[in-house]
């Protein structure tokens, strides 16, 4: 067991992924993945589609099951034990490509659902916190609207606020801007950048290289279900080691 004091130490890993392997049927999607994320660290994962990057972060909060290896989040090992899964999901927030707001609930209810039912907060308390976070993502005036009445960018910001309401240790972003129109991408990235500056531990799967350059502490390039390259943003963009990374960057930066 890890010591709790050590655990909160800024230098200790909050996520430890070691030798993780995953198969879909016979298809080997994640191959010997090893990854340590320190508290407060911002990691950007990129790679071509089908490279397993989404699968990796979905494994971290048990939306997908891994068959081999170990994932430890904040001192809790991820296994079939429902208690552990629940604890990890409380500690890890996730933002999806397609927002996945609950259309039958108002924006405010979206944000208070989990605090009330999972953290057993009183509704008033939960609503107070929710309003704070909605203010931080700059849409407090939409609190009583339904998701269907908001633009894509607004919806994604609500989704971020919804995750933050659970006061997570780590935030996972699964291509948060891919489903958005160009003019809305910036408003979401601004929120994410601000969050990064506040010291949140973040793992982002994204193709927004500008965002990666300004925010990331570490870049990871994945292909064929494995981590091909891991480097600081400076080295990654200016002097990538592998040929595949160069190819990928060439394609993505040429637009």
């Amino acid at each position: 067991m890890l010591n709790m004091d050590n655990n909160k130490d800024a230098l200790s890993p909050v996520i430890e992924v070691s030798q993780v392997n995953k198969w879909y049927g016979q298809f080997h999607v994640l191959r010997d993945i090893n990854l340590k994320v320190m508290r407060g660290e911002k990691i950007v994962i990129c790679g071509p589609s089908g490279s397993g990057k989404s699968t990796l972060i979905r494994c971290i909060n048990a939306l997908e099951e891994h068959q081999e290896g170990q994932i430890i989040v904040d001192g809790t090992e991820l296994n079939r034990d429902l208690k552990n899964i629940e604890k990890i999901r409380r500690d890890v927030g996730m933002v999806f490509q397609s927002f996945n707001l609950f259309p039958h609930l108002t924006v405010l209810e979206n944000c208070t659902l989990a605090p009330v039912w999972v953290r057993k907060e009183s509704r008033a308390e939960a609503e107070k916190t929710a309003m704070q976070f909605l203010e931080r993502v700059q849409i407090p005036d939409q609190a009583n609207k339904y998701p269907g009445q908001l633009s894509g960018g607004q919806q994604q910001r609500v989704a971020i606020a919804r995750s933050l309401c659970m006061n997570p240790e780590v935030m996972l972003f699964d291509e948060p801007t891919s489903a958005l129109d160009p003019e809305m991408i910036k408003e979401v990235l601004d929120v994410m950048t601000e969050l990064a500056h506040e010291g949140m531990t973040m793992i982002c799967v994204t193709h927004e290289m500008g965002f990666a350059r300004t925010v990331a502490d570490r870049m990871i390039f994945m292909d064929d279900g494995q981590i091909i390259e891991e480097a600081s943003p400076e080295t990654f963009f200016s002097n990538p080691a592998s040929e595949r990374t160069q190819q990928f960057l060439g394609q993505i930066l040429s637009h």
């Binding site: 392997n21 198969w23 049927g25 016979q26 298809f27 080997h28 191959r31 010997d32 068959q67 081999e68 079939r80 429902l82 064929d224 279900g225 494995q226 981590i227 091909i228 390259e229 891991e230 480097a231 080691a241 592998s242």
Partner: peptide, 29 residues
């Protein structure tokens, strides 16, 4: 840093075929 490429492997026996199917579809929890 450059890494060695990892070849695709067969999944562990317990997760595919009849046993894997039973574990997933009948005795998951």
């Amino acid at each position: 840093m450059q890494r060695e490429m990892i070849e695709a492997r067969k999944p562990p026996v317990l997760s595919v075929g009849f046993i894997g199917w039973c574990r997933e579809k009948l005795f998951a929890t």
